[in-house]
Amino acid sequence: MMNIAIPILTMAALGFFFALGLAVAYQKLKVEEDPKIEMVFELLPMANCGACGFSGCHAFAVAVVKGEVEPNGCPVGGEEVATNIADALGLSAGEVIRKVARVHCRGNREAAKTRGQYLGIPSCAASHLVGGNKQCSFGCMGFGDCVDACLFDAMYMGNDGLPVILEEKCSACGKCVDACPRGIIELHPIAQNIMVFCQSLDSGKTARKVCKNACIACGICVRACPEGIIMEDNLAKITDQTKISPEQITAIEKCPTKAIGRIHKEEYER
């Protein structure tokens, strides 16, 4: 009998001793945390992608509870999460406009001329340091830093050497935007259906020489819709998508290099 009792009592005593120690330590070292933070944290998608501008989902939850950001600050969660958080905290959710990343370059292998063979580290950041592999110093280099940065498998490198974004998977976290050393990727509202597929600020002559699909600053689009499109540093720029009527879009699509136009679904199925 004693053979069983002694070990049991010993372990119980030890356990009690340590539990007591921890209980005392807990009281001394307690960290006060708003229970709301935990509540908001559990509603988040837990992607920890940092798209909201905070270091992770927990940091975002802290900021929402403190009122530093609106509940709709999480681009990954979108409207659903925003509503849930707003309900939980008794706030208004605010409107969530779903955005997607889009590539402002059509300088694929066929269209854009190369400067020579680049044999360095296969990354856009490294290639950009030495001026890139293409004659166009604004276009996509095609090493896929953006694809590597994507946390949601929403990007892949197309056969023509340009990244492809799967809009249904894109959560607009902005990782690819940051990854691109040339700032070719931008976030657009998903409803926007017309864009400029070029970033080149070269003069029309140079731009045309280095890439068949470059904006050559001819101004056809600006003449078609002066309210919504302007020419800035040899590059057409859409200032207000809402002012472009469907007829004007047809006129805009006369662009000789197709550097501006509708976003076609086929674009994403290369």
Partner: peptide, 20 residues
Amino acid sequence: VSFILVIASLVQLVEMFIRK
């Protein structure tokens, strides 16, 4: 068994301390 008890308690203590 008893060493696990010691380690687990100590880690809890360290965790609380670092968190604070």
